[in-house]
Design a protein around this nucleic acid. Structure first.
Lengths: 110, 110
DNA sequence: TGGCGGCATAACCATATGGTTATGATATGG
DNA sequence: CCATATCATAACCATATGGTTATGCCGCCA
């Protein structure tokens, strides 16, 4: 059953929106660096309350950036493989046109 | 005079936030594809009011994604060279870790 | 089985955000 | 010099968003 095109504007929107918050990005970065984590662990490193972590993770999940696995009373979140694909795709398309327009775009590190 | 590190969390935040709105992304995409445009022209293709276009462009400018050039009574906006650099940088770092974490699982589907 | 640990949801608040119309500043052209 | 075009800002509104504390559900274990 096709749910939704992975590169639809809605998905791009959701992903950019999900990535636009610093706290959420920090949570995601932690998952990427350290692997699967429980809400408990994520709360410990986030600086915000546990309910807020749950809500942030829900948003990341709706944006297809993480997956959740319930194990007993714990929920384990992981960065989702291919999660960044839609955004990467957008960057590839417009980054290409962009650099094509500005041939001086050599070192992206500024 | 160092204003602000181009890859500071604040800049990343501003860029992701700027890119998280569909209307704003459409404006930026138009600039990238068609080159420098006046507010008048951008309003014509945006589907929103002229004041809204001005505000969107202001936000894109604060995010260092576009530059503005005043010519008489017109303001011409362009996609800024190296504009996407901070976000691309972020994607490079975490996209790399990401795919590094999942290379073993590639092709399993999902 | 009763209490506690782990998580999600509800209720609430302040602020940010996207949108509008109205207004004001400034060039430009007749 | 006056009318108009171009743009930005102000004032306003509805909704979304990030945060909190309170609550409720459920699994674990002593």
């Amino acid at each position: 059953m096709m749910t939704n095109s992975p590169n639809s504007p809605a998905t791009i929107d959701a992903q950019f929106k999900a990535l636009s918050d610093g706290t959420r990005r920090a949570l995601l970065e932690y998952l990427v660096r350290e692997g699967e984590q429980s809400v408990h662990a994520l709360t410990a490193i986030s600086g915000v309350s546990q309910p807020m972590v749950s809500r942030h993770m829900a948003k990341l999940k709706r944006a297809a950036l993480v997956t959740a696995r319930r194990a007993g009373r714990e929920t384990w979140y992981s960065a989702r493989a291919k999660g960044l694909a839609p955004v990467v795709q957008w960057m590839a398309v417009y980054g290409a046109l962009w650099s094509q327009r500005f041939t001086a775009l050599e070192g992206i590190g500024e």
